[in-house]
Design a protein around this nucleic acid. Structure first.
Lengths: 210, 210
DNA sequence: TCTGTTTCTGACCATATGGTCAAGATGCAA
DNA sequence: TTGCATCTTGACCATATGGTCAGAAACAGA
């Protein structure tokens, strides 16, 4: 939305426009779904002519692919929060914090991701089978180690991970419902704080920590 | 898919066909989203000519509306599991069981619901503001009472409800991801049992029960 | 059997949409 | 300034889709 009046350098033009388009696309895909999104809508949202989108992204599917990939990258960043922790309370607590932060900062991205998975992951199936699976296997092993060391209650690590994903992403994916139940107002700073604290409190206590 | 060869009575025809169409529509809407779903796809899935769909449901939107409403009804049924419980452990435990059962039996419906909410609830906004809000207020009060009576750990009832919704619906909405991480196989009976047990275990312990 | 009602369906239509293209504008290095 | 590459865009096209309709078929009560 901030049409920079300053003349752009060649290098910047491409980066700038791609970023603008991707941001618009993320929002439109999240709000309308892949099928409901139109290149015209995205173009309008980006403030560019439709033909210009096709100059940077050959097809709607390619644009969508980029959006999904970018989200996956962000998702992976949060994953690191769990590593290098001194123990389960710190590791899982930090992971919850990181994922709640992502839900707050990238609600559109989270919705696109959810939509993609719900539709059978036509675009990121390979990522699920490689990167995500590997990460999951590693984290399951880590949690199992913590359990074996008696540092937390024995629980099924896989289902614990699902619970972490579900609870944190819920605040992004179902933000509209939450907003409605919050008197029509989006969560403010304090309410987000309370949400993250609640999740951490229940989950950590649920696995014998806190 | 069970095309009954027996000749149908007038009354039955309508009910039968509507049910067939609704089942097909539920699946297609879940897998393709509202925008991606086409009347032709739904017709093929139902084994009926497209024009026949329009005989029973004037527009795609009307058909979609029916699907969403039906799901909401099912959703409300599970809500009753929480009432009439003698205490928090029984009430919340039964609610989790009921919602997990719904996730297993109506995965398509759950996805349609999730999609609808993610897109801003264009069709069931009024339900969110009335029925759902009322139910939520009642349940929050119930949980608060349990807390005041010292029967469970003090937690924010609202966020506890979100956690229950998120964790249980996750098994329906993200079933594809779960299946991928489960070696490409959908959860079997034992695994569903383990999933429900894990959720109950962590949540109940998380709020000071069991 | 006759008649009115409901159900069924192929053919058709208007519109929206993804994508193309050719010509023009703009930046930039020499 | 010149020439080339990159970027921009209005006009255009083929196709897919939601929806219509008129006539046929099936049903049911008299």
């Amino acid at each position: 939305m901030q049409g920079s009046p300053r003349p752009l350098r060649r290098n910047e033009i491409r980066a700038q426009n791609e970023a603008t388009i991707l941001r618009a696309a993320e929002k439109v895909f999240a709000e309308a779904g892949f099928g409901g999104a139109t290149m015209q809508l995205i173009a309008d949202m980006a403030g560019l002519p439709k033909a210009n989108l096709h100059y940077y992204f050959a097809t709607k599917e390619e644009l969508y692919r980029r959006v999904v990939r970018d989200i996956f990258e962000i998702w992976l960043q949060a994953a690191e929060a769990m590593d290098g922790a001194s123990g389960p309370a710190e590791g899982i607590g930090a992971y919850i914090e990181a994922k709640m932060e992502i839900s707050r900062r990238y609600p559109y991205g989270s919705k696109v991701w959810a939509s993609e998975v719900m539709h059978g992951a036509p675009v990121i199936q390979d990522y699920l089978e490689t990167t995500l699976r590997d990460w999951t296997v590693g984290r399951v092993a880590l949690i199992r180690r913590w359990i074996d060391e008696g540092r937390m209650t024995p629980v099924d690590p896989q289902h614990l991970l699902y619970m972490l994903w579900a609870t944190t992403q819920h605040y992004a994916d179902f933000s509209h419902q939450i907003e409605t139940l919050n008197g029509g107002q989006p969560l403010n700073d304090a309410e987000w704080r309370a949400a993250a604290d609640s999740v951490k409190q229940i989950v950590l206590r649920g696995i014998g920590l806190d």
